Amino acid sequence: MECAGMWIISIITYYTLTLSVKYIIFKKMKLNPTPSYNYKHGRELSIFLSPDLWFATRFKNAIKYDCAEPTDINLADFVKKNNTYNLALSLCLALIAFFSFDILNHEIVFNFAYSIVAIRFISRSGEIGYAFYRDAIQSTKSFTNLDKYDRIKLALKSYVEIYIYSAPVYLLLPNMDTIKAITLSLNVGSLTNVGMAFPEDTSAVNLTVFIQVFTTLCLVILSLASYISRPNTNE
């Protein structure tokens, strides 16, 4: 029961945190007139696996359908800010998790921090993977005003972020500490030594590294190759 309660509190906390970050980004854009916040359908199922994707979709739809200003410019601004804010948030959460593990050494605090970073690991991977996959395969004109250089910058920031938010998740693996977790994330993210996650005392939780592997492959192979091949024009 205590474990279930911890996860429920962590889920509520993470959803609230994600909504707050997206809302801050949205308010900083100072759109005029302010969108009506009428609900627009799309990607409803993502609310269960990726609140980051779900909330991003809600605010993008508000910009796309409820704003009088140029839609592509506003969407591009939201995407860039969302990318930067998420990188900063992932770094903050990772530092908190490492701090609670190494310095506080308090079981309840660490379990709460770990639950948050674990949810982030799945949620943010879903948002990154889906966004770059969609962008790579789309055949129609993009709604954003991003050229190929903007897209490369976004991809590189997301690539760094994957390393950051994956590292604290690996603290739960057997015989793991902060340095080993960071090293494992670097090895898995660069695809140079995924086998490092599978020592002799492997457990099912070791399979979590493949979330980082698949997200990285989706970003690097599908997205960067596509962006480099695009003409230097706004899309």
Rank of each mutant, 00 (worst) to 15 (best):
M1T: 07
M1K: 15
A4Q: 05
A4V: 10
W7L: 07
I9N: 15
I11M: 03
Y14C: 06
T16I: 01
L17Q: 09
L19M: 13
S20R: 02
S20K: 07
V21Q: 05
I24S: 00
I24L: 03
K27N: 15
K30A: 08
K30Y: 09
N32K: 14
N32L: 10
P33E: 14
T34S: 11
P35Q: 07
N38Y: 02
Y39W: 15
K40I: 10
H41L: 12
R43V: 02
L45D: 09
S50A: 00
P51T: 12
L53A: 03
L53S: 00
F55C: 01
A56D: 06
T57Y: 05
K60W: 01
N61V: 10
K64N: 08
K64G: 09
D66V: 12
A68Y: 14
P70A: 09
P70L: 10
I73Y: 05
D77Y: 09
F78S: 04
K80A: 14
K81N: 08
N83L: 14
Y85A: 03
A88P: 06
S90V: 11
C92F: 12
I96Q: 00
A97N: 10
S100L: 15
D102S: 03
I103L: 01
L104S: 04
L104G: 15
N105P: 04
N105L: 05
F110W: 04
F112Q: 14
A113K: 01
A113I: 00
Y114L: 10
S115C: 02
V117I: 08
I119R: 04
G126L: 00
E127H: 13
Y130F: 13
D135F: 11
D135V: 11
A136R: 01
Q138F: 13
Q138D: 05
Q138W: 11
S139G: 12
T140W: 08
T140V: 04
S142Q: 13
T144M: 05
K148W: 06
R151A: 11
K153E: 08
L154V: 05
A155N: 00
A155L: 06
S158A: 03
V160Y: 04
E161M: 12
S166M: 14
Y170C: 01
N175D: 14
M176P: 08
T178V: 08
I179D: 11
T183N: 03
S185P: 05
L191T: 00
N193K: 06
V194D: 11
M196N: 03
E200K: 04
D201I: 13
A204F: 13
L207P: 10
T215L: 08
T216F: 03
L217A: 08
L217W: 03
V220S: 00
V220W: 03
I221Q: 09
S223F: 13
Y227H: 13
Y227P: 11
Y227F: 15
Y227K: 08
I228T: 03
S229R: 02
S229W: 07
T233I: 12
E235R: 13
